[in-house]
Amino acid sequence: MRVVILLAFLLPILALAQVSLGAVHIPMRSVIAALIQPEGDFLATIVRQQRLPRVGVAIFVGACLGVSGLILQKVMQNVLVSPSTLGINAGATLAVVLSVFFLGLDGRSLFLPGLLGGIAAMALTLMAARLIAGQGDRRLDVVLAGSMVGILCSSASTFVMTLDSDAFGTMIGWLVGDIGNFDHLMLPMVALPAGAALAGAFLFSRHLDVMVTGDDQAALLGVDVRRVQALAVGIAVVLAVSAVVVVGPIGFLGLVVPHLVKLALGETGRATLLAAMLAGPCILMLADIAARVAVAPRVLPVGIVMGLAGGVLFLGMVLSMTRRGRA
């Protein structure tokens, strides 16, 4: 629990840093003044209209992707799976892009197509994993299948966008994951399904915990494995898609967060879910600060920073797993 309390302290500190740092540096006293006083100067306008929504969306997206990754890793007993490595993010992205291009849907009606895309991509990944299953590590088969599905969906999304780049306007940044450029009206649309999914994760946490012992062992302990797997994957997909439709596909956050949570707290307990809910936003805020400070005054989409950092970590994890497998 100490880890959860530490993260709960860290979150507001990082939130203040995220508001203060950026292309325009805003001193902390101006940040606090902007939070307290209804009217203010130019800096207060930046705080209220640009930086604070960025903080809010980082908290929402970080919590969704962190918990989604943790649930997937528990229920699939695989430290390499996450919404991005299973192709869920890319599937939801493609569905959103197709809905905008062919159906002319706007931001407020993109959750359902995104959800269908995420579910279809997950199903495709699981089917492909069965087809390519060899004698080696099955956990790598799933991730390989997820990567193939992810690459296919991402390429298709880019292709559709290049057909008529004007039609997508600012969505080009969304394609790589950008928390600085989102439709504020989308948050209430996804808050309900994401909230319900988070509540479900906490309700079923004990069943999810038993799944970490493996499918057979969980069945022996009294878990209806198929039902819990379906439910858990459903919750994870809803959470990932809720994040994707708002800010685009942010890779590797759902991979990194469970890894850190397990290091700090172990595999089980509701505290792991709470920690993932807090660690996700903290890491995303750090990445966002880096995205805005690294090449200031220019601002990188946060998805690029997460992709670079997470990609290196992912490679390290695969190498460590294959070395252990050979040993």
């Binding site: 007993q77 493996g214 062992q217 290091l263 595999e267």
Partner: peptide
């Protein structure tokens, strides 16, 4: 003997015996 998650706390695993 099958692999158990290395980060699993031993007592938490034993407690899973009571799940049903």
């Amino acid at each position: 003997g099958v692999g158990v998650p290395p980060a699993l706390v031993a007592r938490d695993m034993v407690a899973m015996g009571r799940h049903a």
